[in-house]
């Protein structure tokens, strides 16, 4: 019976639509320790459609993370307007889930206890969501780990649990700040594919911050390239490769390659990447 309820709750997620996110002339500046005004982001105009997967790439320090924490409602923009679902954002949005680069699992709670943390914080019915959590853990391949403590899991597994925690409430908006940045290449590849599958099932809006150009192109409907500080939108690339995309196949696609070339060109123009030097290095004597 309880399995049936869990199934129904998870099924419900399929019909939940994502929310839209709208940024209008959004800027953010900080005051440095020396008292100078540092501009982190400058006049970002962006509309993210419901259910869209948007990846944001940019060099370190370009303000990508700041942009994400503003959309998460954790930081206020200095100027400009930020709307989620056509409503001005005043704090963390109840329909947003966040995944950071660190899993931030509480080390004294079991995996299940961690996944249920948002439910506990919002004062919702824990019993009802326990079966949802179990179901989610099974879906991400963590069945049998519900009662384990975080230290008993590998980095990839911990990040899976963190994703479960972010989506337990079927958020309309999933915000991910370099979620696979700390994982090894193989694990990352697997996580990227699994995230695609999960998103296709959930149908929510995703804003995905990353350093990895390939991972951005593979996952996203649209890749936004930010310039070095102060971050501005330098380039937008639409990716309409058919889904589900397969990691190896997608890379062979002309569109994938073209997007890769365009984004790298953009970085080269900004001096973030340097044109590849294919000459043999001089032999040291």
């Amino acid at each position: 019976m309880s399995a049936g309820i869990a199934g129904a709750l998870v099924m419900e997620t399929c019909f939940e639509s994502g929310v839209s996110v709208q940024l209008q002339k959004l800027s953010k500046s900080f005051e440095s320790a020396a008292g100078e005004e540092l501009s982190a982001l400058s006049e970002i105009d962006l509309r993210i459609e419901p259910g869209e997967f948007v990846a944001i790439v940019g060099p370190s320090g370009c303000g990508k993370s700041t942009l994400l924490s503003m959309i998460a409602g954790l930081e206020r923009p200095s100027t400009g307007i930020l709307r989620v679902d056509d409503e001005a954002l005043t704090g963390p949005h109840p329909r947003a889930g966040v995944v950071f680069q660190s899993d931030y699992l509480l080390p004294w709670r079991t995996i299940l206890g961690n996944v249920l943390l948002p439910i506990e914080i919002k004062g919702l019915d824990l019993n009802k969501y326990r079966s949802v959590a179990d179901e989610l853990l099974v879906q991400v391949g963590l069945s049998g780990f519900a009662s384990k403590l975080p230290f008993e899991l590998s980095g990839g597994m911990r990040q899976r649990a963190a994703i479960c925690r972010a989506i337990i409430q079927r958020p309309g908006l999933l915000l991910m700040d370099e979620p696979f940045g700390a994982l090894d290449a193989l694990t990352r590849e697997q996580m990227v594919s699994d995230l695609q599958a999960l998103w296709m099932r959930l149908g929510n809006t995703v804003v995905f911050i990353t350093h990895g150009i390939d991972e951005a192109i593979f996952l996203a409907d649209r890749v936004i390239v930010l310039s070095p500080r102060p971050g501005r939108i330098d380039l937008e690339v639409k990716i309409d490769l058919p889904r589900p995309r397969k990691w190896a196949d997608a890379h062979l696609h002309t569109q994938f390659h073209q997007a890769m070339v365009d984004i790298r060109d953009c970085f080269e123009r900004r001096g973030i990447l340097h044109a590849e030097n294919l000459e043999q290095p001089a032999v040291q004597t």
């Binding site: 954790l74 966040v98 950071f100 660190s102 943390l117 506990e120 914080i121 919002k122």
Partner: peptide, 25 residues
């Protein structure tokens, strides 16, 4: 790590909840 507090805040946690559920333990 302030990331824990940010995470809790993103879930809509109050300062008191951040204290009881994260900082104190």
């Amino acid at each position: 790590d302030r990331g824990y507090a940010d995470l809790a805040r993103s879930m809509g946690a109050s300062e008191l909840q951040i204290f009881t559920k994260i900082r104190l333990p």
